[in-house]
Design a protein around this nucleic acid. Sequence first.
DNA 1: TCATATATGGTGCACGAGCACAAGCTTGAT
DNA 2: ATCAAGCTTGTGCTCGTGCACCATATATGA
Lengths: 345, 345
Amino acid sequence: MSVTIKKIAELSGVSRGTVDRVLNNRGNVHPETAERVRKVAQQLGYSPNLAGKALAVRKKSPLFGVILPSEGNAFFDDVIAGIRNAEAELRDFGVRVEIRTMRGFDPTRQLKLIEEFEDRISMLLLVPINDVRIAEKIGSLKEKGIPTIALNTDIENSSRLCYVGSDYKKSGEIACGIMALLTGGRANFGIATGSFRMLGHSQRIAGFHSVMKARYPGLKMLDIIETNDDDIQAYEETCRMLRNHPDMDAIFIVAGGVYGVCRAVIRSGYEERMTIVSFDDIPTTVEMVERGIIKATICQQPVAQGYLAVRKAFDYYISGAEPETDRFILGNEIKIRESLVDIDK
Amino acid sequence: MSVTIKKIAELSGVSRGTVDRVLNNRGNVHPETAERVRKVAQQLGYSPNLAGKALAVRKKSPLFGVILPSEGNAFFDDVIAGIRNAEAELRDFGVRVEIRTMRGFDPTRQLKLIEEFEDRISMLLLVPINDVRIAEKIGSLKEKGIPTIALNTDIENSSRLCYVGSDYKKSGEIACGIMALLTGGRANFGIATGSFRMLGHSQRIAGFHSVMKARYPGLKMLDIIETNDDDIQAYEETCRMLRNHPDMDAIFIVAGGVYGVCRAVIRSGYEERMTIVSFDDIPTTVEMVERGIIKATICQQPVAQGYLAVRKAFDYYISGAEPETDRFILGNEIKIRESLVDIDK
DNA sequence: TCATATATGGTGCACGAGCACAAGCTTGAT
DNA sequence: ATCAAGCTTGTGCTCGTGCACCATATATGA
């Protein structure tokens, strides 16, 4: 059947142990022998059997550490669900997953959480803050043999193994496209952004703008407000924006503060004529889609993100082989009322 | 750590062999002993270790048979890609997958393909024709210990293990919702259906209608034509429909014939004012979305369908446990130009 | 009473990889 | 010549499950 260590041993005239030492770079093998073994393995197209490896590796029961932001955040609850799914699938392989959550976006805090994990874990799954100190930490972890996978958001200039998440720029492009479709290509819109310190949010806005410039001259941006994921602030800022721009007929909500923005629109009596496009499908957003005030929302498949990140971590842990790509992109799904709410409700 | 056969053996005072006989219903065990063992296993929450099982089961190298319709169909090429992904993941567990494709929707032909598989396979993955003879065949396969998984389309009144695919009714509902959003809730539309003999197509139309009735009184259906997945027929029928209904401003394409319908619309000079909603994202459809004539298309995640079906087959083969649910539903994704085409193109 | 059939339970090996330990070999120093 | 040290390689056990084969114990018949 398929090629095993035993077969390689026979064909290269050495014992299983020697082949094992060569293939796992454990040294203590004569260079010539090693070369011969490597050659045979190469020619036969050897790849280690997952089941066998898992069984042997089981007793070590590797620990994967996960650090997520925003405790109690509905979006990341879905990510956690995906992580738990993957954990259940991998339990038989001895894998354990430990999750830590943090509030806010403070690099020092994140650094401290990483250090608490540092000498217990075999892999780190991180929703990284885009800060140079975090990037450096990822580098030093790599030196110690602990690879990091960036989850949900990427980090610049780091040696993370790969990124698992959505393409934020593309999500902004799609948002622009759907807004154009919904308004017949003519709208005076405002943007409610999350925090500028989040890489993804800026990328969304960039994507929106580039498509707008290239294809939809009838879309005109009137204002941009920062909501900082805070509903009260979002409400007040939106009220102010609507007062300043009575001709506004569309809003692009980049991240948090959905509830605040929508409430402001309703209170101002603009519910009917306003076209709102937002992101994700946390309960608050679904409620607003159901009510019809949000026309479309673009979702990132959080469950799949969590699942895939753990799977990719496992793949690397088991095989030691670099992933095929350093970016695993999950699709941006457009959802409307009929996608989210059952008809008989 | 986790609970193994050995541990159960110790706790119930018998040997590993006996526990194995009980858990795999292989007989030759005293009823009282069996009962005791079962109880201990139950209490400890035993579930067999996948890696161990796979290693043992490997030499038998189970064969999964797959039967798909429509040779050379772009949609099913994606399903096949998903199947191949899963196969690669499971190769180390000894799993092999063999795929057969057929043309058309002839039950006799499908029956014959199944019979060619019958005494070689451990599992059947089938895109079933909704016919009583197929349902009966699924029943007799089950008797012989070969479970069937319905893929992409379900089959009524059969004993298939489970269904993996999309919710067609829901996809019709979403199609109606997006059409209403794109037309401001007012449109005179026509339907181009695939084949009425396909269960999924009827369900899509039913979903469309039920949402229309419940929510969008401004949508008015003028005509319905059958395209039978044939572009030439679709072209001619569409031309006829457009002649008969000069006030038509939207078309709902349920299945095949996309190219024919779109060509007819272009030739008739209605490209500008027409709102077309279709399904799937095969190359022809993508081309029309790029051109802007199709505004939105609702996709079934064919790759995920193929992947998941094989995984579910494996899960059942390994564990013998009934799946958690008998319907594994993959989401219907709305895609627009920006989802499908890169901005810099 | 003994031989034989039947019911029941135990033991050992296989699967593939990892790893600890032992064994063989060469080299150099005394 | 003898022994130690180091380099290189082989062997045997582990992980959890499945299954063939063997070992008891009890029952049945002559």
